[in-house]
């Protein structure tokens, strides 16, 4: 009887192992499909024009070349574009956090009945289609002479993202029990000190989530940058658009460009993956 039970358990165990191996294999195939486009692009960055436009796009045996990377430095100014992207994304993130974190805290700690409603309004602001606000915003920026500056881009990106930061911080601080803060208050901490030294450190996961999501949206934004920048202030996505449609430029150079534009951000996103999902889902455009 014991032998029989052992046999059954053994069979069940083997079935479980087989099933989980099948599962892992299927998972790898799906993952490969999702990563294949990116890998292809990275590959083309090291291919010569002849290799890229050859008859067989599946040829994996090619002699790598760095000519595409040197080529984009001759044709474009990747350094300037990168600098602009870093400036705009950092500025947007800082402004959105500076405004959003205190507001989220205040709404979470307020006992007013209207506080949750205000938080929901901020959440709603995040869902507004950018194009609805873009035309009048463009007109205002044109009137005060800010079109073509990084500041205009930072202002509108921060405005559309601040709602998301407020909402995330509101939910984060609601989950922090107020007792800790009350205790600090009794120890003689000022209200500002309670916020800055107690609440902000306790809410750091929410802050990191919002910072990562806002930075990513601002970095990846194309619509605002397309409209509000000049060649001097263009960000990476707008600059990359210039690689399309010109005979002098091949997909190889686009691939080389794309590596500068996306790989660093993708690596950061993977490294901080546990903060990514909730952030992007709540705040996505």
């Amino acid at each position: 009887m014991a032998a029989y039970t052992a046999l059954v358990t053994h069979r069940a165990y083997r079935r479980t192992v087989a099933r989980s191996r099948l599962n892992a294999a299927a998972l790898l195939i799906v993952l490969a499909l999702f990563l294949a486009p990116v890998l292809w692009l990275m590959g083309t960055a090291f291919k010569t024009r002849v290799d890229i436009y050859s008859e067989n796009p599946f040829d994996l045996l090619f002699t790598p070349t760095l000519s595409n990377f040197t080529g984009i430095f001759e044709l474009f100014e990747p350094g300037r574009l990168l600098g602009n992207s870093v400036l705009v994304a950092t500025g947007t993130t800082l402004l959105a956090l500076l405004l959003g974190v205190p507001a989220g805290y205040a709404l979470a700690r307020s006992t007013l009945r209207a506080a949750p409603a205000v938080a929901y309004v901020f959440l709603f602001l995040r869902m507004v289609p950018p194009v609805a606000a873009l035309i009048p915003f463009y007109l205002v920026m044109r009137d005060i002479g800010l079109v073509g500056t990084q500041l205009a881009l930072i202002l509108i990106s921060a405005a559309l993202n601040v709602g998301f930061v407020v909402w995330t911080m509101y939910t984060t601080f609601r989950a922090v029990p107020p007792d800790v803060e009350a205790a600090a208050g009794m120890d003689g901490c000022s209200r500002w000190g309670v916020f800055w030294r107690i609440a902000v450190p306790l809410g750091r996961s929410g802050i990191l989530t919002s910072a990562l999501a806002v930075f990513l949206f601002s970095w990846n934004d194309f619509l605002f940058a397309l409209l509000l920048t000049t060649p001097r202030t263009a960000t990476l996505p707008v600059g990359m658009l210039a690689t399309v449609g010109s005979v002098d430029i091949s997909i190889g150079q686009m691939g080389a460009f794309a590596q500068i534009a996306t790989i660093p951000v993708v690596i950061v996103a993977i490294a901080l993956n546990r903060y990514m999902v909730s952030g992007v889902m709540k705040g996505s455009h």
């Binding site: 990359m240 399309v244 686009m254 996306t262």
Partner: peptide, 23 residues
């Protein structure tokens, strides 16, 4: 695997679009 699935999500949409245009 979960972390690697984030690659498309973090990819700049415009670059993804240009990539697919070529694909």
């Amino acid at each position: 695997v979960t972390a690697l699935f984030l690659v498309p999500v973090a990819f700049t949409p415009l670059v993804g679009a240009l990539l697919f245009k070529n694909l």
